[in-house]
């Protein structure tokens, strides 16, 4: 009998990831326990979960800065063993080098990969334009607002042309209006660049608005509790957030998350 053709492996796959924090004078803490999921190329996936459930740690694992104690992470069929060009992170606190101008900050990743100066600058200019920071090329981070700083962070991550964008609560440090604006722009950029995005957030609204799928994690030790598909049409705009369909999805996510947030309500 002929076996069916081997299924294409998923783009990103996390399988049974476990991570235990061990420290002196304290009992070991299991941060992640048997966390598994798969992500397809080009998807926008958000991860929500209670504080301390290990979502950010997991993102650092995908980035290659933290190694799991057990389990496998693969991307494109190859195991993730350390940082790599195909993954880039946008950090919550921006992580800009204060002694570098906007341009030099955007160039950082390219510089560390040994790209020639002229090419770097050209690429940086394109991205500065993409995130709408033209005219601020020579400014220093301390001269920028929070929203502008995160645009630099986004441009820097995109500059190395990663296939996956890892975003660790990137808009959490911004005020509400700036956040709305940045979400809309992120969607536009995502639709234009077709990156795969893994987005960690505390905000159900943000997760529902941006994502194709939302992964809800359990309280510590974190694992996948439920994956919710967001079948809302794209392109999405701010008005969509006022529709009953959107609110229905939000309350579905909330129902799942609530059990993890409020002790004793877990079934």
């Amino acid at each position: 009998m002929r076996r069916p053709l081997a299924k294409m492996p998923p783009f990103i796959r996390a399988n049974d990831i476990t991570l235990v924090f061990k420290s002196k004078n304290r009992d070991p803490v299991t941060a992640l326990n048997n966390l598994s999921f798969e992500i397809e190329r080009g998807e926008f996936v958000s991860i929500v979960g209670p504080s301390g459930c290990g979502k950010s740690t997991f993102l650092n694992m995908l980035l290659g800065l933290v190694r799991p104690d057990s389990g496998h992470m693969q991307m494109n069929g190859t195991p993730i063993k350390g940082p790599g060009q195909e993954r880039a992170m946008v950090f919550q606190e921006f992580g800009l080098l204060p002694w570098r101008t906007v341009t030099a900050n955007v160039e950082l990743g390219l510089e560390l990969k040994g790209v020639a100066a002229a090419q770097r600058t050209q690429r940086a200019m394109e991205l500065i334009k993409l995130v709408g920071l033209n005219g601020f090329e020579r400014h220093y981070p301390h001269e920028l607002s929070g929203g502008m700083k995160q645009r630099v962070g986004l441009a820097r991550a995109l500059a190395t042309e990663p296939e996956v964008l890892l975003m660790d609560e990137p808009f959490a440090a911004l005020d509400a209006q700036t956040r709305d604006l940045m979400q809309a722009e992120l969607l536009q950029i995502w639709e234009r660049t077709k990156k795969t995005v893994l987005f960690v957030t505390h905000s159900i609204e943000e997760a529902a608005y941006l994502s194709d799928r939302v992964i809800v994690m359990t309280a510590r030790p974190g694992r996948t509790k439920q994956i919710i598909d967001i079948n809302l049409p794209r392109p999405r705009d701010y008005e969509m957030r006022l529709t009953p369909e959107f609110n229905e999805i939000k309350s579905r996510i909330w129902e799942v998350l609530k059990e993890e947030l409020i002790p004793g309500s877990r079934r």
Partner: peptide
């Protein structure tokens, strides 16, 4: 030195030398 900046350099595959010259030295200035 901001630990976040060290992570940034590492995440782009920077070496120890990159850490010294691109983060530690300038932030110590």
């Amino acid at each position: 030195t901001d630990a976040l900046l060290i992570n940034v350099i590492r995440s782009f595959g920077g070496t120890d030398k990159d850490l010294y010259f691109k983060v530690i030295l300038p932030s110590t200035m």
